[in-house]
Amino acid sequence: MSLVISWLSVALLVVALLALAGGALLAALRARRREREKQWSHRVAQSLLVALLNDEPCRFELPQGAVVGRKRLLAEVVAALRVTVYGLNPEPLRALLLAEGVDRWLARQLRWAHGAKRALLLKLAADLPSMPRVVAEAVRHRRSTTRVVCFAVLLVEMAAEPAQILRLAASYAYPFTSVERGEVLALMRHSLLPIAYRPLFESGSENLERLAMALVAQFGIEEAEPYLQAILQRDDREAALRALFLLVQLHRPLPRRLVAPLLDQLTPCERRGLLRRLVREGYSQRQIAPLFDGEERACYARMAATYKRTLAAALGR
């Protein structure tokens, strides 16, 4: 019996060692493959960029090299180039992708993928020059129950028709999250669309209003103050809070008749958060005195003193 147990132990040990060695070998092979893919992508990106900048796209040839998934790598390189470089002509890139069959590959991948993987492929498609076969396949998933897929389809449609970006944003079924807002704004920048904030505020669409507020925040547009004050007076607590914090970020005056009704609805924690933001933006005690009671004003004074000590220490260094 003891002999059986000892042979069993040895066998288990051997199996465990083989499994460890196999795992280490697989990891090494994967690392080698990733390194080869990185080198190949780097060579493709450099030579493609040189060909495009010299206006000689027909001279470009894909470098040889044993890489798995050349179509996927090529698509990723082209997408990264479009996102990274300003003013690249998309036509030669589209011709290259069509010649290499990337559109057929991507459409097939979209058809068979699910969930997050489909969303990632759609995001890749949105970053590439628009290809009819891919757009047709993407649009089939417009009514997906997965929100990330719906949004990724929206990006593909916006990339295919930049002039319709605002109409598509207004028709999106969900209110934009901050991440989605950022993606749409990035797409608008890449499409070189002139963006005016006034029509977005006046459109009546929640998503376009959120885009407008993101633009105002990004460029510090103080002239948008009347629109933000109008949002403050709405019954929509979330929208009013966003408008209030944006006014604070722009360091605009906070009239008591507009702000006090909203402050009364805030929890003590939210009021404390607002105080911290006011301190960071450098509002004076006199400016905030009409909005807060004695205890909160004392708290504000302590926070401001802390910030001032940090400032004095930085100057003295």
């Binding site: 990185k38 992508s41 990106a45 450099q46 960029l49 040189v50 390189v77 990264a80 180039l81 990274t84």
Partner: peptide
Amino acid sequence: MVETAVVETALAG
């Protein structure tokens, strides 16, 4: 990697 390649290409020559 692509971003580094872009910056290198900008400085080529």
